[in-house]
Nucleic acid binder design. Structure first.
Lengths: 165, 165
DNA sequence: TCCTTTTCTTGACTCGCTCAAGACAAGCGC
DNA sequence: GCGCTTGTCTTGAGCGAGTCAAGAAAAGGA
């Protein structure tokens, strides 16, 4: 176990979790790729632990989320993504075209960073903010396509319709 | 066809869609129940059109969303919900316990009503805000359970963990 | 009324995820 | 270092939401 794995092992024990190879593999993948989905995590973790099963990944991720080591985000129309960045209060930018996700720092800092104008009797503990748009790579690609063939509709980027918010 | 259906028929034609019984049935259910999922819509619409197929409902809803008649919302961990309220700029309150959804007016009004502090090269066109919490009914039920048996953890309400936003 | 085009029905299928049972291994006490 | 307890992982089945494709049916203009 190298220095990084020792740190992770310590973090797992701190959270009351046992230190196992599947867990270290998943941590390694998550550290490499923030915002990975379960499938990506499985593929990556299998490079370190070839016999790893999909169910083990789901179990590990659930344990991480419960222990506060990882955070689960679920953009509409996409499988759940997982990230190690927890504890701070940040939001996400999601590309409508390729699904790329980027972090945005919250200007307020503490959760919930927003309060609804009228809570309709709800006790609100979290405000989840997702910014939908087009990432730089997809903008560039669109420009190239538009230059090559004039009559191109930008409409096709809509993963979903809906009013803005 | 009654007066309400005539209005809907007009709205469908305005949007360039043909007027069909499945579409009128779905509109009727959506008018009755804002924030209904595809299954609920199917069940409701079958009261008016018994032979309606699930795929027809998906097709109708997709056509409505594309035409701007309906809006699709997808709270994390729940099937997609549909609502007729479009065009204005509002957000949603979601109950972690029972999944109930309520509308909240946006104080800003125009989309996107928020701008990320650093857009990381993204062109943002929409900010989606979901407030997570506990609805009044679930709060009441919890209080009753807590009164009946003292040592009750409120933890079990978490549909998902994760840091606040 | 006919004809074209859109829409709906039928049926098979994919994907993301969950559940259950038994095998396995981490880590504690000795 | 060894055995035991208990949490974790593997194996395999299954579920719900949603998609895809092809042919039948119906809307609506000529």
């Amino acid at each position: 176990m190298d220095a990084v794995e020792t740190t992770w092992a310590h973090q797992l024990r701190e959270a009351g979790l046992r230190v196992t190879r599947p867990r270290l593999s998943v941590l390694s993948v998550l550290a490499d790729r923030p915002h990975a989905d379960a499938g990506t995590i499985l593929t990556g973790a299998r490079e370190l632990h070839p016999s790893l099963s999909p169910q083990a990944v789901y179990g590990v991720l659930e344990a991480f989320v419960a222990a506060g080591i990882a955070r689960r985000i679920e953009p509409a129309g996409a499988p759940a993504l997982f990230e190690l960045r927890v504890g701070d209060n940040h939001h996400h930018l999601v590309c409508r075209s390729c699904g790329a996700v980027a972090d945005v720092d919250c200007v307020v800092g503490a959760a919930p960073c927003l309060a609804p104008s009228d809570a309709a009797g709800f006790v609100v503990d979290e405000a989840e903010v997702v910014f939908w748009g087009l990432c730089r790579a997809c903008q560039d690609r669109d420009r190239q396509v538009a230059d090559a063939a004039e009559p191109v509709q930008l409409e096709e980027h809509g993963i979903r319709g809906g009013a803005g918010a």
